[in-house]
């Protein structure tokens, strides 16, 4: 992903506000993700992590501020145009289409740039999906759904992946498997913005962590500073 090598961060968010109807949910969110990094958004339930991802894509009711990808402003673009710049999204609720089978789900997101993984590469990373390729989306277990939700965005050539709580509600073995996958993706050159509540998991995959509270980014740690800041983190996350 040579074109990721530009001056400045791959993704720069500044002064981002977002609204659902009358309720004002994000208040001047600011952070940046460099090409090739895995960066997390940590924070309690309702802090605004999901809304931040949705605002980057343009699928909240209303948003303002600045979201720049490789320096280019995207805040006024429609979500399909944002996706075509090379951002792919794995939603918190996974968004597997029940009326499509596994293979149709996998092949659904259109290729937006060259350089994506092939379906065969993805089946090699997630062998379970190959076995279940003919099954209806509605018949998958939670873990299989999550694998599929991640797998299907790797084909598109998007180099920035937005993953919303991929480990939520999954058994420890599957959480570990997802950790392996995220490290593989980083090694392949993907940039990942990961929303997590589980900071022990986050610490095993990420380079940096931003902490969100009440619709704002309130702190940032490098992964190697995490141990030194355990007390603060416990306060932020209420664990």
């Amino acid at each position: 992903m040579a074109e990721g090598v530009t001056e400045g961060p791959l993704l720069a968010v500044q002064g981002l506000d977002a609204f659902y109807g009358e309720s004002h949910v994000l208040h001047g969110v600011a952070f940046a993700v460099n090409g090739g990094e895995v960066v997390t958004l940590l924070g309690r339930n309702g802090a605004g992590k999901t809304t931040t991802l949705k605002s980057i894509l343009g699928i909240v009711g209303r948003r303002s501020g600045s979201v720049r990808l490789r320096g280019a402003e995207t805040i006024r673009l429609r979500s399909d145009a944002v996706a075509r710049l090379g951002i792919a999204y794995c939603p918190e609720e996974r968004g597997i289409f029940a009326s499509l089978n596994v293979e149709e789900n996998l092949l659904l997101p259109p290729v937006v740039k060259p350089g994506g993984m092939s379906a065969a590469d993805i089946y090699a990373v997630f062998p379970n999906l190959l076995e279940r390729r003919g099954s209806q989306g509605s018949k998958l277990s939670g873990g299989e759904q999550q694998m599929l939700a991640i797998g299907r965005i790797l084909r598109t050539g998007a180099d920035l992946l937005l993953l919303d709580e991929p480990t939520e509600g999954l058994a420890p073995v599957i959480v570990q498997a997802i950790g392996v996958v995220i490290r593989q993706l980083k090694a392949r050159g993907f940039t990942v913005l990961l929303v997590e509540q589980n900071f022990r998991f986050a610490a095993t995959v990420a380079d940096r962590h931003y902490v969100m509270e009440d619709g704002r980014v309130v702190d940032m740690f490098r992964n190697d500073e995490l141990d030194a800041n355990m007390g603060k983190l416990h306060d932020y996350l209420g664990v």
């Binding site: 343009g58 699928i59 399909d80 996706a83 999204y89 997101p109 598109t156």
Partner: peptide, 19 residues
């Protein structure tokens, strides 16, 4: 498959880059 998916969840289908 685009039609069926967009019938279920148009927002997500659009966020994948489909008009």
């Amino acid at each position: 498959s685009y039609l069926r998916a967009a019938t279920e969840n148009p927002t997500l289908v659009q966020a994948f880059g489909i008009n």
